[in-house]
Design a protein around this nucleic acid. Sequence first.
DNA 1: GTCTATAACGAGATAGAC
DNA 2: GTCTATCTCGTTATAGAC
Lengths: 205, 205
Amino acid sequence: MARAQQHLGADTASRILDIGEELVQTRGFNGFSYGDVAADLKITTATLHYHFPGKAELGRALIARYAVRFFDALSAIDARHSGAPARLQAYVDLYATVLRERRLCLCGMLASEYNTLPEPMRDAVIQFFDENERWLTRVMEQGCETGALRLSGPAREAARMIVCGLEGAMLVARPYGDVARFQSAADCLLASVGVSTSLHPAPAR
Amino acid sequence: MARAQQHLGADTASRILDIGEELVQTRGFNGFSYGDVAADLKITTATLHYHFPGKAELGRALIARYAVRFFDALSAIDARHSGAPARLQAYVDLYATVLRERRLCLCGMLASEYNTLPEPMRDAVIQFFDENERWLTRVMEQGCETGALRLSGPAREAARMIVCGLEGAMLVARPYGDVARFQSAADCLLASVGVSTSLHPAPAR
DNA sequence: GTCTATAACGAGATAGAC
DNA sequence: GTCTATCTCGTTATAGAC
């Protein structure tokens, strides 16, 4: 099942998710409407309601897909990099890539709107941060054992600081349209756990 | 001029600003309406339009008042504390106080909505962050000279990391309803510039 | 699965009486 | 300065034809 129409343009549901994701990351969940998505896709809002009964359901689906993709990326980092410093650098790059598209982290954006979010979306946002924290904590612990990192406190607290710091760095850097501002804050954060970033993926000539 | 009606309940304009501020900090600029403010104040939206012609003007006024109050607080810190470590702790407390009321920094919230903000509000948000950075940079430089701080890079970059880190810590901690989560991230950030926070304003028994 | 048509509501805003 | 009344528009959502 689902074999044709795979090549140029996925099925409608995933195209809706693509546009919805972009809109939430750039304008926020309260900053876009079904009408915006429909216009972008040249379909009607009625079609939208066929695929996602309401905005809350669309929101849930957006977080679910984003989280899967994000944690897949974390698994890929585990597979490709072995040391804690390299893993942390790759983790930072995940965020930088999002910011380069002038977007915020989906869940960072939703965290700012948390009080106005439909209930089911709230839990999903929390879960996203929890899983980030778990992954980072593991990396931190490993780095401590091998001596690759120097932490002044518990691994869990360092992990939380990194998540908070990166989310905040995206938030503040975006209005300036300045990815370097994010990168410099991220470097500072990594330096504080003992990761030297002097040789950064040299900004292409 | 303006002498009566000062005691119980300020004039209408500032009561509008009070409610507006709370709504932006808790729900975001796109998450509240003139109707919400009017209902809270038991006035009509027409009255609101008399004091603030449109939502954009109300937004500008909100940032302006917030910024004045915030930078007054920074001056007060300069006056009351002399060492860089004490000043940084007091700076963190400014944020913690906001979060305890389950609010975000007004400009942190607006930064997340930056793309949807009326033009005049955007500049004001940027200015707020610039001034924060300037103040922190001065504190950092002073702390370096006296040897009270240990920075691994330029003072300006450390300042940016602190702003980003604190904004992000508020953002992430609020969904958890957990001020301790903020405090722990803040302590980590301060530790990274050489401020020891072992003896914190002990959480009342 | 996608459309047309339309309902039902809320938002920002204005005119003009008091 | 605050109100009532009203307007226009955007947003979410549904019924039913194709």
